[in-house]
Design a protein around this nucleic acid. Structure first.
Length: 333
DNA sequence: AATTCGGGGAT
DNA sequence: ATCCCAGAATT
């Protein structure tokens, strides 16, 4: 069999088994490149199931590029809170204004032009070309890495570049949107990390990993160690029952979100360790470290940080918070 | 080339 | 607990 037959069999499988998704139109490109762009940014490093609700709320509040460009970053972050990687929300907002100001409100269909825009990298540029403009670009995400590594039986740690070279040779010159959707759906629903259902896979008879019974060992991924960090969080409560919160910097961890003031244990503390009353702790697992914050309640009419503001519990919903801080909020109610 | 960015669902 | 998911930007 030739490579043409591989892509044909995959497209045939997709026509019958591909997922129906709000940001997808099977059989052709999506009519709204804006919707494709938003969905692609949201889907980075997360799952379809997680994004569905966020995408629905987003398109209701910001139906068009213009609506998004006119909104405040604060409101964009409110829509994004809980999704993680908050720099994406900032970049998406930046990008919307650039598109309105310099691109006549149109999302480019040229890959190199897309790569110039904030928040759009190699994968997303290709995916917008495929899904919004039906171009025959090759997309490489976690699904494609797994599918291709298994198809070719790659037993070493693979790079995205290596996968791209192999995957691009299989990419047909027509049906760009369907083919990109298909290979990703195959990885998401058939060629899964654990217990792939090879029996229904259109590429089963060509798959080297299956032939050698190595699907549970491919792809080879190296995993970094996750360290644990500690700190103290201060619930500073005034006579009116309001709590002190502050906005995090525009860069770095949880950028742009609000928080109750806290510091790592290896940094200068805002109060002495014994001050206030212990109020338990919260733990949270980030991608690259685990964090435990011991909580202490302080009665004070003034903030220990210059940018702190006092907010009543009933008004906290107006501020974007991380999931970590939502855990703290849940404790004070 | 490595590290830094969140969060949740499945196992 | 561990894995990993439609990655990009920074160092």
């Amino acid at each position: 069999m030739t490579d043409i037959n591989l892509s044909d069999s995959l497209l045939h499988w997709f026509a019958q088994n591909g997922r129906e998704l709000p940001w997808r139109v099977k059989g052709k490109a999506h009519f709204d490149p804006y919707a494709v762009w938003i969905s692609e940014i949201m889907l980075q490093q997360t799952t379809v199931k997680t994004v569905l609700d966020y995408f629905g709320r987003w398109m209701k509040r910001f139906p068009t590029l213009s609506d998004l460009a006119q909104a405040d970053l604060q409101e964009v972050l409110l829509m994004w809170q809980g999704l993680g990687y908050y720099t994406r929300a900032k970049k998406i907002h930046e990008c919307a204004r650039i598109l309105v100001d310099k691109y006549n409100g149109q999302i480019p269909s040229d890959r190199n032009e897309l790569l110039k825009l904030p928040g759009i990298g190699a994968y997303t540029a290709s995916s917008i070309c495929c899904f919004a403009f039906n171009k025959p670009e090759t997309v490489v995400d976690g699904n494609v890495i797994r599918v291709i590594a298994r198809l070719y039986g790659l037993r070493h740690a693979v790079s995205k570049e290596e996968i791209y070279d192999l995957a691009s040779q299989l990419t047909p010159t027509e049906n760009g949107a369907d083919y990109a959707s298909a290979i990703m759906d195959l990885g998401a629903t058939v060629c899964t990390p654990d217990n792939p259902t090879c029996i229904v896979c259109p590429w089963s008879s060509h798959c080297m990993a299956r032939k050698k019974n190595l699907t549970d060992q491919i792809p080879v991924i190296q995993k970094p160690i996750k360290k644990e960090r500690f700190g103290t969080l201060w619930l500073i409560k005034n006579m009116a029952g309001a709590y002190c919160i502050r906005k995090r910097p525009g860069k770095g961890l949880l950028s742009g979100l609000y928080e109750f003031p806290w510091t790592y244990s290896d940094e200068p503390s805002l109060y002495s360790k014994e001050e206030g009353i212990g109020f338990g702790s919260v733990t949270h697992v980030f991608t690259h470290f685990k964090l435990r914050l011991d909580i202490r309640i302080i009665k004070s009419e003034t903030s220990p940080v210059s940018e702190g503001v006092f907010v009543l519990p009933s008004d906290l919903k107006e501020y974007p918070f991380s999931t970590l801080m939502k855990k703290v909020i849940a404790k004070i109610k």
